[in-house]
Simulated scan of single mutants.
Amino acid sequence: MSGPLRLIELRPSPNNIKVRLGLRLKGCEFETIPVALDDAERAEVLRLSGQPLTPVLLDGDLPVWDSAAILRHLDTIAPHEPIFFGRTRERIHEVERWERWARGVVYDTFTIVPGMAFRGAFDPAEVERANAEMRRHTARIEEALADRDYLLGDAPTAADLTLVPMVFSTMLTEEQAAASRIAAFLRQHFHLGEERDRTRAWVERLMAHWH
């Protein structure tokens, strides 16, 4: 590694969970620089990385931002298993297909319920739509996990790390929901549902590395 690692993170957000999981799974030591949920200016993030979004990984003096770029950076500086994007062209393309689906289709579904919480507006029809769409998404995940622990085999990839934080938001415990009004709203209105045993075990397997 080229320098000490520091993670600038907004801890509850999916992309920040994704990167923290990546660091933990790689066995990287890192320090954290927390960003508050209500820190609209993001002055410290701007100062350190030149842009306002989290997460940002500081590798020595080098800022790396965008969660997918950070996972690729981790594959470069810690080139041991698990490899998040693969060692062959075919494997990389397979991971990226899942990642595009997660960052596009699934993310659009995920944002419906917390979006209502941020706006302070409750729409039962939109909640029903979000839960129905997530049921369809997790059906695909459940099928992929039929004969394996992770989406593409025996080790987690960027596909798993991109999807799991969003699915995790449908499984919050009472203790986790107490962390914020957004988490409480998710626990009340966004649910994984029944017949998702493999998906539930997959989430628990990965999220055990979060803290």
Rank of each mutant, 00 (worst) to 15 (best):
L151N: 11
R91L: 06
G104H: 08
I182G: 02
P4C: 09
D197K: 13
R129F: 02
M171E: 09
H191G: 03
D108W: 01
K18D: 06
E133H: 01
N131R: 10
R47I: 01
D160Y: 06
R196N: 13
E44N: 11
R181K: 09
E44V: 11
H137T: 06
I33V: 13
L151S: 10
V19Y: 04
E31V: 05
A139Q: 14
S180V: 01
T173R: 05
E31S: 15
E175K: 09
R196C: 07
I17N: 03
N16E: 07
R129A: 13
G60K: 06
V19D: 05
L48I: 03
P52H: 03
G86A: 12
L58F: 05
E94I: 00
R200Q: 14
M166D: 12
E96S: 01
N15T: 10
R181V: 04
A78N: 03
G86R: 10
L23C: 12
I77D: 05
T54Y: 01
L71W: 09
I92V: 11
R136H: 13
V64S: 04
S169P: 00
E90Q: 12
I77S: 05
A144Q: 11
I92M: 08
R89N: 09
P156Y: 03
S67G: 08
R103T: 13
P82H: 10
G86T: 14
A177G: 15
A139I: 04
D197L: 14
R100W: 09
G86L: 10
R129V: 05
S49P: 05
H73L: 01
E44T: 13
P52A: 03
I182K: 13
H209T: 05
S169Y: 07
T138R: 03
H80R: 12
P82T: 11
A159C: 11
A121H: 12
T199V: 14
A178H: 04
E194Y: 00
L206V: 11
E81F: 01
T173K: 04
V64G: 05
A159F: 08
I141Q: 01
R148Y: 02
R11L: 12
W210P: 00
R72E: 14
A117V: 02
E94T: 14
S49L: 07
A158E: 09
R200Y: 04
L10M: 15
Y107K: 11
R24C: 09
L186Q: 14
P52K: 06
R97P: 00
E195L: 02
F84W: 03
R87P: 00
P4E: 13
E44D: 14
V35P: 07
Q176N: 01
L10I: 03
N15S: 14
F118T: 08
V106I: 15
H73D: 02
A158C: 12
L145H: 09
E81Y: 01
W65F: 15
A158H: 11
M116N: 05
G104D: 14
W101M: 13
T170V: 00
P82L: 11
R119F: 01
E126V: 00
